[in-house]
């Protein structure tokens, strides 16, 4: 009984601890925001791992989908719940912000999933390097489109999300952002794990290893590709939405190819097709970014250099395609990783 629910117990106590320390302000706002970015990075790296690791395609436009999610959920939130120069008074009583917030984030994710079709449909005929180019193009299309939408700020960016959070805090004073980031991070890992551990989802891995054999052995590869790209970009959209609300400000420039690269570094560092690897490397990478902050712009020399070293000596990433349970077998007693 205990063993069966040990992972639930662990998560609940982790979440409870997080909320408690955030509520009591035992940790500084800086550390709290680092923790929240950690959550967002976990969402981004695990969702990109679905495409780059499990499906074996090379997507380098992940930040584009993040951008769609960020903008859709920000604009929707501000439009509905906050007084804004552009959108005027709140459309719905801000009291509902608390309940509708997760829905808004999910709608942002859904919009990003639709944007994922931009890559999913070309992927029927294209793969490998050529698809990678398409993903970069998709990233640029999305950013440029938003830069040219003047009604939501264009390249100046969009803000006002803090007012939505304030509206939530007015109803019940709790650290809402850490709560939602934590919840959505768990949701994202949960969803991906369920997907890839089913026979249906193992079709993704079959496509990675031999697409021709997969198609001939009854896997509807186009359907699986569509679903996988949509899930991956949709979760990136959720990550983007949370990112926007944490910062309280978004501009298209922060979702450029550099951001995509950052996510890719996390995936390749952690290991392809390893969910726990992605989670660990996202945590590690977020901390590393903060530790290297004094180096300022030089950190973008140190981090790619690190990637070169990893690719030289451990091209499969730190974890390879293994999960934590393959390295520490005792963990299997508590949780089935695969």
């Amino acid at each position: 009984m205990f063993k069966r629910y040990s992972i639930h117990t662990l998560l609940v106590s982790m979440g409870g601890l997080l909320i408690y320390v955030a509520y009591e302000e035992m940790i500084s706002l800086y550390i709290l925001s680092v923790l929240m970015f950690m959550g967002v990075n976990i969402i981004l790296s695990t969702s990109l791992n679905l495409v780059n690791g499990y499906m074996g395609e090379f997507s380098c436009g992940h930040a584009g989908f993040m951008c769609v999610g960020a903008y859709v959920s920000s604009v929707l939130g501000v439009w509905l719940f906050a007084k804004d120069k552009v959108f005027g008074p709140p459309l719905i009583n801000p009291d509902y912000a608390l309940y509708l917030f997760p829905l808004i984030i999910l709608i942002g994710g859904f919009a990003a999933a639709l944007a994922g079709l931009l890559v999913a449909i070309p992927s029927y005929k294209t793969r490998g390097d050529y698809l990678a180019i398409i993903t970069i193009a998709a990233n640029y299309i999305i950013i440029s489109a938003i830069e040219n939408l003047d009604s939501i700020g264009g390249s100046r960016g969009f803000m006002g999300m803090k007012r939505v959070i304030t509206a939530m805090e007015d109803i019940a004073y709790l650290p809402w952002m850490p709560i939602w980031v934590f919840a959505f991070t768990i949701f994202c890992i949960w969803l991906i794990r369920r997907y890839v551990s089913s026979t249906f989802g193992k079709g993704v891995n079959a496509i990675c290893q031999d697409e021709v054999a997969a198609e001939i052995m009854s896997v509807n590869t186009n359907k699986i590709k569509t679903i996988t790209f949509m899930v991956s970009s949709g979760l990136a959209g959720i990550g983007g939405g949370l990112f926007a609300y944490i910062l309280g400000y978004v501009n298209p420039g922060s979702f450029n190819i550099l951001k995509s690269t950052e996510v890719m570094v996390m995936v390749y560092l952690g290991g392809m097709a390893s969910l726990s690897g992605s989670v660990l490397s996202a945590i590690f990478f977020t901390i590393l970014l903060e530790v290297l902050r004094p180096l300022q712009i030089i950190k973008w020399i140190v981090i790619p250099l690190m990637l070169i070293i990893v690719m030289q000596f451990r091209p499969e990433g730190l974890m390879g395609s293994r999960e934590l349970s393959d390295i520490f077998p005792w963990m299997k007693r508590f949780y089935r990783f695969k």
Binding site: T199, F200, G203, N205
Partner: peptide, 14 residues
């Protein structure tokens, strides 16, 4: 996985 065609369930079932 080679029985993929006979699964008959979709993404939301998984």
């Amino acid at each position: 996985v080679a029985q993929h065609g006979q699964l008959n369930y979709g993404f939301f079932h998984t």
